[in-house]
Amino acid sequence: MSAARFRKTLLAVPWVWAALLFFLPLAIVVKISLAETAVGVPPYTALIDHGALRATLANYRDVFADSFYAGAYVSSVKIAGLATILAVLAGYPMAYAIARAPERRRGLLLLLVTLPFWTSLLIRIYAWIGLLRPGGVINAVLESVGLIDTPLQMINTTAAVCFGMVYAYLPFMVLPLYARLERLDPALVEAAGDLGATPWRAFLSVTLPLSLPGVMAGALLVFIPCVGEFVIPDLLGGPDTVMIGKVLWSEFFSSRDWPLSAALTVVMMAVLVIPVLAVQRTLGEEP
């Protein structure tokens, strides 16, 4: 095989991957979203019936007509957005500290950041239930030292969902940010100091702007899965925590309305495409 052909073959791999595992499933989801529910297996009508195209936009009409769905989208974006902001605030100092740590210790610190991944997310969120519930570890400690009389309601709140998301997705914030900060020439910050900038000014005018692409990349990696997150709101959330992932789940499994949940999914993807494109644009301007 020639070098050029080898190169082409290699470059084709991600495209084949995306085609098989992203575009094809997406096409199936779109197809289902244009169908109607039916009793049977699968529980929706065929797109082409006896040679005639049978597509309907009724599901999309339902999605937009029912304010419940719109509310679920808005609340998902809000909670995921808040979690993303908190993840930036928590992740930036971590990434900065690791990037400034002695080189021989960085590997260990990065390992510690990714260590939670060695256990299943489900198990770890269950562990948080044990920590947060009324008779749980945190309440017990607070009660025993006399800080509180009655248990704090921490579990089944939107705050708990937000906290759980920050906990679960923090590594996705830290790693790209670390990669960016680690590549930053230390002479740039030294030069800023030499030119009269206090350390804080040097951070604000040199380190922070130059690390923004890392912040953006990390924010996307946290925000996108958080919007559609199901496990965390289901386990830590309360009755008033409405997120689109939970809605999807109940439409799919409880109502067995595959076409409607497919339409909800397609709309969610459209909602997510906007921030991705916005970030891609800012990253594209980078030197």
Partner: peptide, 28 residues
């Protein structure tokens, strides 16, 4: 600290701020 000293240093890598224009670098 460096920012309190009346001397300036030209770095071997020049350490120009890549996100600023030439004029902004000088104005910094």
């Amino acid at each position: 600290a460096p920012y309190q000293r009346p001397v300036n240093m030209m770095f071997q890598s020049y350490a120009l701020f890549p996100h600023m224009t030439v004029a902004d670098n000088v104005a910094f």
